[in-house]
């Protein structure tokens, strides 16, 4: 599931929408971004800065008012079905058992059920969901639901993954556990990741590069290359390098909000 492209580029992506009063609001203005194949890019910014909108545009759920999205160097107009997307809430379908939730992407591609399950089972077992394959979603804890949701997104093998605050709703301990888990899975699948988060330390821990967005209209105002070695363990958060990167990003965020 790796080594098949995965370059993502945004050129001057802008978005506007009309609010209830009929006022035109600029959500994004001129976002440029390049994520190399296999790179883990995190996008942080104050709430309402258009991070999620940006992700929805890349996923193809929205079309930008201006600018273009390129996948592997080619302008991609209709992007639905091209990138793997994980929404903020897990979006698991309550009437499908865990395994059938995980295989839904393959099912939509026309992969026969048995074949889809054969592909999913080892993945579920390897990544801690082995005993829950036959459970209904409500029987899972929040952390387990997120694992299932992530594997559902990952299994389609698309080279670009878009994660919209995937751990936002979880408690701190589960969150830390899942961040580590995410890195383990990511190392295996090697996809390009664009992660939206408002948690600075999460961004530093996970990403190769962290981009800071300004408040609305959102654009990228700062960038931090995270030089921490991989594979990373949670302990890395106690190192001075981690603290320094985090401090620079917080400062950049403060400046972005103040400007």
């Amino acid at each position: 599931m790796s080594g098949r492209g995965g370059e993502l580029e945004l050129r001057g992506v802008a978005q506007t929408f009309t609010d209830r009063g009929g006022q035109v609001v600029e959500a994004l203005e001129g976002v440029d971004l390049l994520a190399r194949p296999g790179e883990f890019v995190a996008l942080i910014g104050p709430s309402g800065c258009g991070k999620s909108t940006l992700l929805r545009i890349v996923a193809g759920l929205e079309q930008p008012a201006a600018g273009e999205v390129l996948l592997d160097g080619a302008v991609a107009g209709d992007r639905l079905g091209r990138c793997a997307f994980m929404p903020q809430r897990d979006g698991l379908l309550p009437w499908r058992r865990v395994i059938d939730n995980v295989t839904i992407g393959l099912e939509l591609e026309g992969v026969p059920r048995e074949q889809a399950r054969e592909r999913a089972l080892p993945l579920l077992e390897r990544f801690g969901l082995g005993e829950f394959t036959g459970s209904w979603p409500w029987q899972l804890s929040g952390g387990m639901r997120h694992r299932a949701a992530f594997l559902r997104t990952a299994i389609t093998g698309r080279p670009v993954m878009l994660l919209d605050e995937p751990f936002g709703a979880l408690d701190g301990i589960t969150r830390a556990e899942l961040q580590q888990w995410l890195l383990d899975v990511w190392r295996e699948i090697g996809a390009t990741v664009l992660l939206v988060t408002h948690d600075v330390s999460e961004a530093v821990f996970l990403a190769d590069r962290v981009l800071v967005m300004s408040p609305r209209p959102g654009r990228i105002v700062a960038e931090e290359r995270v030089a921490l070695a991989r594979p990373r363990e949670l302990r890395v958060e106690e190192t001075p390098e981690f603290g320094a990167a985090e401090a620079r990003l917080r400062e950049a965020l403060r400046r972005a909000v103040a400007a």
């Binding site: 079905g81 793997a84 979006g91 839904i104 992407g105």
Partner: peptide, 11 residues
Amino acid sequence: DSMDLLRTMGA
């Protein structure tokens, strides 16, 4: 969210 998710899968 489920609708969006499935749409991004090409549904």
